[in-house]
Design a binder for these strands. Structure first.
Lengths: 195, 195
DNA sequence: TATTCAAATGTCGCAAATGTCATTTAAATT
DNA sequence: AATTTAAATGACATTTGCGACATTTGAATA
């Protein structure tokens, strides 16, 4: 469990240590106290939530820490999933497969991959729900989501509105897949790409 | 009796080993000494009490292992899930709801509840698969699984064979639900009850 | 624009808590 | 038994919490 001291947070936020303590006291930043005199500690997760909530730019150190380049492939059609896996592994990515919602959710939370490819139409699973859920779950909300589906444009655009980062309409070529993935994994974790 | 070394505790709490020793010396954390040079050990139970007393968040590794008494309710029928939740909350358990496989998997891995109630027949999700998957995933393999279903006995028995801890056949009473849950959460997390 | 005022943040000093380092020794591993 | 790993310890360095007070900020108002 990675934690931060008030001093570290003070540096990251370029603010006085006293102020950090006050944030914690007020509950604006979630923390806990050690025994002893009650020195404060903040869980990495809680600190990240705090930064996001107040749109504070990420310290470099946290960016790399938070980015994992493994890829979770979510598709109930085993053949499709394997085909995607083959291409991505060939390009050097480490991959995880999930053929149902349960495994998808487990792997996502356990491994916290940097990107997931998501089949919008899986039995018993609403792809849009999944996207929204991921975007609202602090620890994985930055996961890149590449929607892969044979549905029509409006359906795919809706996925973007829900929070997906990009989509690939079936059928697609290997190179289209790869360039979509590379684009997403190279792009910044946060906000503005435009310059 | 599971015990921890000062080093392990230091890692869990993200604190220096020296500090852990001082906590023990001061009596803030209960421990005992081995013969030899007097290396410290802390009983799991005492460590958990310590974490609770000081509101220190549980390290991931301990979440399931030791006393996480929260309950994950997996059922696609919202009304059923809510009814179960009501009963369990009433008895003092903290609960989590999941109406589809994705959320179930996410919550399981994120919160590592001590017990999950599982509807065997959810759309797009094979309950037996879920049970096997949980049993094979080291970090959550000790999670108690209470199968809840309207299927017949053979189907329920099959769930037990797959690794479920118990089942409740619908319809069931509130008290049946409660006693099943209590039985499971009071029983040892690991192996042998016999003795 | 200037003024006012409350809330937020910064400063300072001290005592206490925590971290670091080098060394010694027990415990685990082979 | 030899080797490797991990823990305890003392001495010392650094960081933190806190109270009291100063300063800055930002919005409302004159």
């Amino acid at each position: 469990m990675k934690t931060f001291t008030t001093g570290e947070i003070a540096k990251y936020c370029d603010v006085n240590l006293r102020t950090v303590i006050r944030w914690i006291e007020k509950g604006e930043l979630k923390g806990f106290k050690l025994p002893g005199r009650g020195n404060n500690r903040v869980k990495e997760e809680d600190f990240i939530n705090f930064l996001r909530r107040y749109d504070i730019p990420f310290p470099e150190e946290l960016k790399t820490h938070a980015s994992n380049n493994s890829i979770l492939i979510v598709d109930d059609e085993v053949q499709v999933a394997k085909a995607i896996k083959r291409v991505l592994k060939g390009a050097g990515y480490s991959t995880l497969l999930a053929h149902d919602g349960f495994k998808a959710g487990s792997h996502l939370m356990k491994e916290r991959p940097g990107l997931m490819t998501l089949d919008l139409s899986m039995p018993g699973l609403d792809g849009y729900d999944v996207i929204r859920f991921v975007r609202e779950a602090p620890v994985v909300s930055q996961t890149k989501i590449l929607v892969i589906s044979a549905l029509d444009k409006p359906a795919l655009e809706k996925a973007i509105e829900c929070g997906a980062d990009a989509y690939l309409q079936k059928p697609f070529s290997n190179s289209e897949l790869l360039s979509a993935v590379e684009l997403l994994l190279d792009s910044p974790q946060q906000s503005s790409i435009a310059g």
